[in-house]
Amino acid sequence: MLRSVPLALWATLFGTTVLAADPIKHGFLATGGETFITDESGKTVWKYPHATRDGWVLDNGNVLLALSKSKTYPGGAVVEVNRDGKTLFEFKGTQSEVNTAQPLDGGTVLLTEAGEKPRVLEVDRDGKVVAEVPIQAQTKDHHLQTRMTRKLASGNYLVPQLLDRVVREYDPKGKIVWEVKTPHMPFTAIRLPDGNTLIGCTHGDLVIEVNKDGKEVWRVTNDDLPTKLISDACGVQRLANGNTVLTSYRTTANQTKLFELTRDKKVVWTYTDARKVGIHHFQILGANGKPEKNPLR
């Protein structure tokens, strides 16, 4: 069973009932304990039989995924697969975990490795490492070193560092050029067009936005919502209309897994399904099932 709850369809104005705007609908790629794609009706149209950390539907319809560690991939991996599940590209992690995958211009792929030597890597389609950037992070808990690292238009790397409770921007040589302390473990960090940074703070059950000086300019917590929808704020995406979609990862069957809210914190869309696992991260897709251009995630 699944439910998709949009904005109210009807409004009453001066005693006359009028039809409101079309309901909000989203298809998306979900990563986590289950990996799948839904269409706008909430129907599952594709599944992949492996737990994942991060992922992207590519322009050609293939899917790039960061795979969770397993017997087959003891250090995690990044793969590109087609809709038949055939592996077209594979890079196996060499340390404890792989927690990021991002497609880059020119066909290269960005990933992070967690371990004794945490690092950002860029690899080409032959599996050759073409860039390596060390991350200054604690090594006591490899799992809590990094999550959704992203390469910026400047060529720098934006890295959320969970247990260190900091988001850092590294240049290609590994120098820290910007950082902000966070009120809880940061999972997602997104550089917005105006220079602000949107940050999902996992078990803190909150999302914040900070400016270039690190000053908080926006935040949402369960206190701002009609019900406690946030339960482990992992993946976050800022839509072109200015709304924010976030996932509640620590959820189970028939609980809200994803929801969209406006800048003034009104919930305008939710997604609920019967899966017993939550969604780790996600990518909102267009009406045709294809990715939006330059998604902020």
Rank of each mutant, 00 (worst) to 15 (best):
M1A: 08
S4H: 07
S4V: 11
V5M: 13
P6I: 04
T12D: 13
F14I: 12
V18M: 02
A20K: 06
H26D: 15
G27W: 11
T31N: 09
E34H: 09
E34A: 15
I37T: 03
T38L: 01
S41N: 13
V45W: 03
K47V: 12
K47P: 01
T52Q: 02
G55N: 03
G55D: 04
W56H: 07
S68I: 00
P74Y: 06
P74H: 02
L88C: 11
L88V: 07
F89W: 10
S96P: 06
S96V: 03
E97F: 06
V98W: 00
Q102T: 04
D105P: 12
T108V: 13
L110M: 08
V120Q: 00
R125W: 02
A131V: 03
D141H: 10
L144R: 05
T149P: 11
R150Y: 05
K151L: 06
N156Q: 08
Y157F: 15
Q161M: 03
L163W: 13
L163I: 09
D164F: 02
D171W: 05
W178F: 08
E179K: 07
E179D: 07
T188Q: 04
A189V: 07
A189W: 09
R191P: 05
L192V: 11
L192G: 11
P193Q: 13
P193H: 12
G195K: 01
I208R: 09
E209G: 15
E209I: 08
K212H: 04
K215L: 05
E216G: 04
V217A: 06
V220T: 15
V220P: 14
V220N: 02
D224K: 03
K228Y: 03
C234H: 04
Q237S: 03
A240E: 15
V245E: 10
L246C: 04
T251Y: 05
A253Y: 06
T256C: 09
K257V: 12
K257S: 13
L258K: 05
F259L: 01
D264S: 11
V267N: 04
V268C: 07
A274F: 09
V277W: 09
H280V: 14
F282S: 02
F282C: 02
Q283F: 10
Q283R: 04
P291M: 14
K293P: 11
L296K: 07
